[in-house]
Simulated scan of single mutants.
Amino acid sequence: MAGSGSSEVRTPIFSGENYEFWRIKMVTIFKSLGLWSLVEKGISTPDSKKKKKKVEESTEEEADAEMIVVLMKDAKALGIIQNAVSDQIFPRIANADSAKMAWNLLYSEYHGGD
């Protein structure tokens, strides 16, 4: 149904050709879903001082809940990347445990150089 407001995003499938076009489309998709910063920078693990300060400001349960949300967003981004590559490309990122890792693996192999 057109205009239904579906959150389903159709990702382009990367088959090993036209990486730069695919990358631009994927960045736009990640930005539209609020996931680009996570893909680009990865999951930030606060150092112990920052973590201690944050725990003082909020409960430990709240900090854990926030981390769970971040991990779920990362899993969503990783799933989008996995679904946006062909079966021939997928083995190259199959062992990536984060969206940033998968993104960087594809970038390092297919980016044409600066």
Rank of each mutant, 00 (worst) to 15 (best):
S4Q: 13
V9C: 03
S6E: 11
I80K: 06
T45P: 02
V70W: 13
E40F: 08
N95L: 02
W36Q: 07
K50F: 07
G42N: 03
V70S: 14
M67T: 03
K50C: 08
L35K: 11
D114M: 15
K41A: 15
K49M: 08
N95P: 00
E17Q: 12
I29R: 02
E57C: 04
K100C: 07
I81F: 02
D74Y: 05
I29D: 01
N104W: 02
D87M: 11
Q82Y: 04
R92M: 14
V85S: 04
E61Y: 13
E62N: 03
E60M: 06
T11M: 10
I24L: 03
R10A: 07
L38N: 00
V27G: 06
P91C: 12
L33S: 08
K76G: 06
E62Q: 06
S108D: 07
A102F: 02
E62I: 02
S108T: 05
E57M: 05
T59D: 10
S44D: 05
Q82W: 06
L33V: 03
H111E: 09
G42P: 00
L35Y: 06
K51P: 03
D47W: 05
V55Y: 08
Y19M: 09
I80D: 04
V39Y: 04
I68L: 09
T28L: 11
G42T: 02
V27N: 04
A65W: 02
F30K: 03
L78Y: 10
I89R: 02
I24Y: 02
A84C: 05
A94I: 15
L71F: 04
S37G: 02
R10N: 07
I81T: 00
I89S: 04
K54M: 13
K41G: 10
K50Q: 10
R10E: 05
K100H: 08
T45H: 11
V55I: 15
S98R: 10
R23A: 04
D87Q: 10
K54L: 14
K51V: 04
I93E: 15
S108Y: 01
M1Q: 11
S7A: 09
S98G: 11
E60I: 12
G42L: 00
E60N: 11
I68C: 07
S4G: 12
S86N: 02
K53E: 09
E61C: 14
F14M: 13
S6M: 11
D64A: 07
P46R: 10
I81N: 00
